[in-house]
Design a protein around this nucleic acid. Sequence first.
DNA 1: ATGACCGATGTAATCGTTTCCATGCGCAGC
DNA 2: GCTGCGCATGGAAACGATTACATCGGTCAT
Lengths: 335, 335
Amino acid sequence: MAGIKDVAARAGVSVATVSRVLNDHSGVREETRARVLTAVSELSYRPNTLARSLRTDQTRTLGLVISDVLNPFFTELARAVEDAARESGYSVIIGNADEQLTLQDHHVRTLLDRRIDGLLVSPASGDSVALREAALLGIPMVFVDRWIEGLDVPLVRADGRPAVRDLVAHLYALGHRRLAIITGPVASTTSNERVRAFRSALQEHGLPLPDAYIGQGDFQTASGRRATERFFALPEPPDAIFATDNLMALGVMEQLRRLGLRVPSDVSLAAFDDIPWFLHTDPPITAIAQPTQELGHRAVAALTDLVEGRSAGSVTLSAHLIARRSCGEDERTRR
Amino acid sequence: MAGIKDVAARAGVSVATVSRVLNDHSGVREETRARVLTAVSELSYRPNTLARSLRTDQTRTLGLVISDVLNPFFTELARAVEDAARESGYSVIIGNADEQLTLQDHHVRTLLDRRIDGLLVSPASGDSVALREAALLGIPMVFVDRWIEGLDVPLVRADGRPAVRDLVAHLYALGHRRLAIITGPVASTTSNERVRAFRSALQEHGLPLPDAYIGQGDFQTASGRRATERFFALPEPPDAIFATDNLMALGVMEQLRRLGLRVPSDVSLAAFDDIPWFLHTDPPITAIAQPTQELGHRAVAALTDLVEGRSAGSVTLSAHLIARRSCGEDERTRR
DNA sequence: ATGACCGATGTAATCGTTTCCATGCGCAGC
DNA sequence: GCTGCGCATGGAAACGATTACATCGGTCAT
């Protein structure tokens, strides 16, 4: 592979001049510039980014650590992030934490080793040593969707609380009184927020949230199955289930199918995060939709601000309820 | 951030010795090694991979270019690839081509600029200059799932033809005679193979495949909708539709819902690539499943073989039909 | 006692860039 | 005809690692 020296030789100039042309610095005679450019294309020269980054101490690369690529919400987010970053001239390297703290830290470390310019992360729940270190080191960093308490890092997310309140009102209006929830990991910020919002909305309607109706999940499909199994082992099972993410909702459906139960006649179902398939499931599933695209774009904007020396603040967008048949029929969903 | 010099200074040795310890080369006194190691951890030193790679001319990084991250088949593949690579001590950088040739070439180029050790690609259809150049340059490269004719690059994939044959037999047995197919992009190798297999299977049953029953798609949801729309504008619409990927199947369902048509009573539906949601759609969708995990693992194995100087051959796995209710009832699907 | 050898370590070149500083040249001002 | 200035360019020092080669005691065989 040709290097800058080869280009310089062929153009009959020094490497300094080639570099100047490549980074279009002013002060190169037009004719020289042209000569360099033809040499570049004749040799189909491409600068070695490793060397460049080593020298300039910047990679024009962002790291994105997400909790689970297989979760459509996150793949959509990743997609949006990559698009936005590319528009701003950055590349993105994605690390999939698979909801595991150790894997997450592994990725954070390798990304830092690669000297990425900034880190976008939707942290798995729990205490991440690597993330704390990175924050302390002053690595430009932005949280998206999820966050870690006590770290002074800008956060871009959607506040789902009003939508959760709407959801509870919707369920109540449809006659449901025994509402259950399936949570994410214990220390998950988003999950906790959703649970609290759920509980306080229930209170407004004078409904209790017994412990038995709180299914401990981990944002993965299998935990949705397990929680559902437990609910239906109860003497009085819930008449509505709210899964705090879409994969657990899938688990709920799988388990209901095994148990031979029907939605919504036997039990209602709603999920956090809307995905295209929810329209075509049997029945279509009521969900709370986040503005995923915008989340991604805003997060990148905040991060590039930080990277480029500007300041960045947190951003809170809003989520909204999309009522479908999985909670029963009412005037809004019947057609 | 601390560099190797700082470590050397603190341990009272030269940088050469530190490097030897770090890459555990033999010939370092045990006591010196210990001293270096403590210096490393006291400074929480991490080697700069840019510098290292520049010098050694290897990054221990694989590039993966997939056609569409939003397609669950590819995200699952990406996930498998990353897992396998990590086990072999490689990182993976993913590029999402979004079924666009220019975007694909953009990613191939930036990956090459990053001096990845090898390239795993599921090429978008059409002639890719960047890919051809890379192959000519001798970049270790392996195709997965899709390929480009005329390039001598190992290919890891699943042969879907027998399964397509099974599918046609299944549809025929259920009484369907007007079978339609929705293809991928014109030059797509996988799509073409699926179409050919479909057509020849139809012939075996003495059925024609009129042009009007070939919907030109592009592996994206919207094209599934459009093709369906056209099918039902026909004087005699098909009684079964085979979508050659899962996103187009989603598009078919969306359009059918708009048209107020029901599956399978009005029309049957089957798709290539199985995804978890197919079990819970209304009705569950008959699909051809690929061994995605194994595809990813085999592809990485082939690529690392190439990267590490061994030779690698193509691998062909097989796909299989999973019959569900979307094609109508028979003894296998009725429960 | 001498030299060959070996084990542990250091010195310095190198990878491919960017960029600071020096250099040479033409030209305007005096 | 100098001086000084600006413009275009080149030389060489970094960036942070790896590694070929040199060095330096010490041991051992002769």
